[in-house]
């Protein structure tokens, strides 16, 4: 097996006396879609925050392509190839839908410190941004201000920003949360498409079991911040720890 693109080694964070993520060691490989599951408060989003750098780890390391990136800032990690879509929509509310995506494309093109040219004259950035909007079916809302967008479309845009960034490691934090039954498939199809490319690593926090069954190559279970199970979907779902600690409660919810 090839060396992992992303790995965490004993990754731990403590908030006061509370251990939110407890010595999680896990490796992720290119082309693999890993679903991260666990009850609310299990530390899934916190684990994401540690990997993408929003929170500094109390102990342990994050390795990207074998290099320790634990000391790097969020933007450094993003440029190195870790991209993230957020659970709570996190956009540029008073800018247009197009401008939101264009900013990501511009960041990727390394044009941010260009003080002289006119942003609107960069045809290649404009085209790339419009292509993304077409892919996520938001091209019809191109010039709308984000704050006027429906919740479902904001969720789509959240995913669009990550797709525009096209990182080596995609991190989706409940991408379909709060979306209607009609809207969710657009996002799920995009994730399935990315998976089919087989050249990206996808981490997916998700509650909906049907989604996990269809998409995941592998499932890891977090429980009270610790890694409780790790393996292919059938094995993990059948395991005692999942049945007791997680599946039972989730199934009742569903």
């Amino acid at each position: 097996m090839t060396s992992p693109i992303l790995a965490t080694e004993g990754l731990t964070v403590r908030f006061g006396g509370h251990v939110a993520v407890d010595a999680v060691s896990c490796a992720f490989h290119t082309g693999e879609l890993t679903a991260i599951v666990g009850p609310n408060g299990a530390g899934k989003t916190t684990y994401f925050n540690l990997i993408s750098g929003q929170i500094p780890a109390s102990a342990g390391r994050v390795l990207l392509r074998g290099r320790d990136i634990s000391g790097q800032s969020v933007s450094q990690r993003t440029r190195a190839g870790i991209g993230r879509a957020f659970q709570l929509t996190n956009l540029f509310p008073n800018l247009s839908v197009f401008e939101n995506v264009r900013l990501v494309v511009q960041s990727k093109a390394g044009q941010g410190m260009n003080l002289w040219s006119m942003a609107s004259r960069h045809a290649e950035l404009t085209e790339a941004a419009e292509a993304i909007l077409t892919r996520v079916r938001l091209i019809g809302n191109r010039d709308q201000t984000v704050s006027e967008l429906s919740h479902g479309n904001q969720r789509k845009l959240e995913v669009a920003l990550l797709i525009a960034l096209d990182p080596a490691v995609y991190m989706f934090d409940e991408p379909t949360a709060g979306m209607s039954v009609d809207e969710a498939p657009v996002v799920l199809d995009l994730i399935a498409e990315l998976k089919e490319q087989r050249d990206r690593t996808i981490l997916l926090v998700e509650h909906k079991m049907d989604v996990i069954r269809t998409l995941a190559d592998r499932i890891i279970v977090l429980h009270n911040g610790a890694l409780a199970a790790d393996g292919d979907p059938a094995t993990v779902m059948a395991s005692d720890v999942v049945q007791e600690a997680y599946m039972g409660r989730e199934l009742e919810d569903v």
Partner: peptide
């Protein structure tokens, strides 16, 4: 927060 997360320092 998001500007940082799309790669701008």
């Amino acid at each position: 927060f998001r500007a940082e997360a799309i790669g701008y320092r």
